[in-house]
Amino acid sequence: MRFFKYCKTELLQNNYFHAVLEANKGLFQRIRDLSAIQKDGINLIEEVFSKNPILIINNYQTSSEQNEHNGFCNLLKGLCSMFRNPTAHEPKVDWNISEQDALDILGIISYCHRRLDNAQRIR
């Protein structure tokens, strides 16, 4: 559970809003570290996982592997748009995150970290 190091304090305080924010920021930092690209958000994801990817999460040879890779790229964009950006730009009082929502979101982030564990840098 790589995400835990980014949001342990917030989780122990039941601060789900900031736990989700910190876990998302940690995921995007890991992508920067693996790719050596210093962009952020959607721009980072598009450059690293686009049609001419820097990182691949599988062999990226077959149509199915490319579809899976593109789906992973879209999942990361979704995390950014749906959870990272609102928590970074909206007041906590206006954007409530329940414990169940936080656990579900952190599960998705954990899955993304696991896929990055085997990512290959190809350029």
Score class of each variant (00 low, 15 high):
Leu55Glu: 01
Ile54Ser: 08
Asn74Asp: 10
Tyr16Pro: 00
Lys5Ser: 15
Asn52Arg: 12
Leu79Cys: 06
Lys77Cys: 01
Ile108Pro: 03
Gly71Thr: 07
Asn96Thr: 13
Val20Asp: 10
Glu22Cys: 10
Thr87Arg: 08
Arg84Val: 01
Gln100Ala: 14
Leu103Cys: 11
Lys92Phe: 05
Leu76Lys: 12
Ile37Leu: 15
Asn59Met: 04
Ala119Ser: 12
Leu75Trp: 03
Asn43Val: 09
Asp33Lys: 09
Ile56Ala: 07
Arg30Tyr: 09
Cys73Glu: 13
Leu76His: 11
Thr9Val: 15
Arg114Asp: 15
Ile57His: 14
Asn43Thr: 09
Ser35Asp: 03
Ile97Trp: 04
Cys112Val: 06
Asn67Val: 14
Gln13Asp: 08
Asp40Ile: 05
Asn43Tyr: 07
Tyr16Ser: 00
Gln13Arg: 10
Asp104Gly: 06
Leu103Trp: 13
Pro91Arg: 15
Asp33Leu: 07
Asn59His: 05
Ile97His: 07
Leu12His: 10
Ser110Val: 06
Gln29Thr: 05
Ala88Tyr: 01
Ala23Tyr: 02
Ala23Arg: 04
Leu11Asn: 06
Thr9Phe: 13
Ile108Arg: 07
Leu116Trp: 00
Leu103Met: 13
Pro91Ser: 14
Lys92Thr: 06
Gln38Asn: 14
Gln13Ile: 04
Gln13Ala: 10
Val20Lys: 13
Val93Asp: 09
Ile57Asp: 14
His89Val: 03
Val48Gln: 01
Phe72Pro: 00
His89Glu: 05
Arg2Asp: 08
Ile42Ser: 11
Pro91Phe: 12
Asn43Met: 10
Arg32Ser: 07
Gly71Pro: 04
Glu90Arg: 10
Phe83Trp: 14
Ile105Arg: 07
Tyr6Gly: 14
Ser81Ala: 04
Gly41Cys: 02
Met82His: 15
Thr87Lys: 06
Asn52Pro: 09
Ser98Ile: 02
Asn96Ser: 11
Phe49Asn: 01
Arg30Met: 13
Ile31Asp: 15
Asp104Ala: 05
Phe4Ser: 12
Ala19Phe: 00
Asn67Ile: 14
Ile54Asp: 04
Gly107Gln: 00
Asn67His: 13
Ile108Thr: 06
Gln120Lys: 07
Glu46Pro: 04
Glu46Phe: 02
Asn24Glu: 11
Leu55Trp: 00
Gln38Ala: 14
Cys73Lys: 14
Arg121Val: 13
Glu47Phe: 01
Thr62Leu: 06
Gln38His: 11
Asp33Ala: 09
Leu21Asp: 10
Glu47Gln: 05
Ser63Tyr: 14
Glu90Lys: 12
Ile57Ser: 14
Ile122Leu: 03
Glu10Arg: 10
Ile31Gly: 15
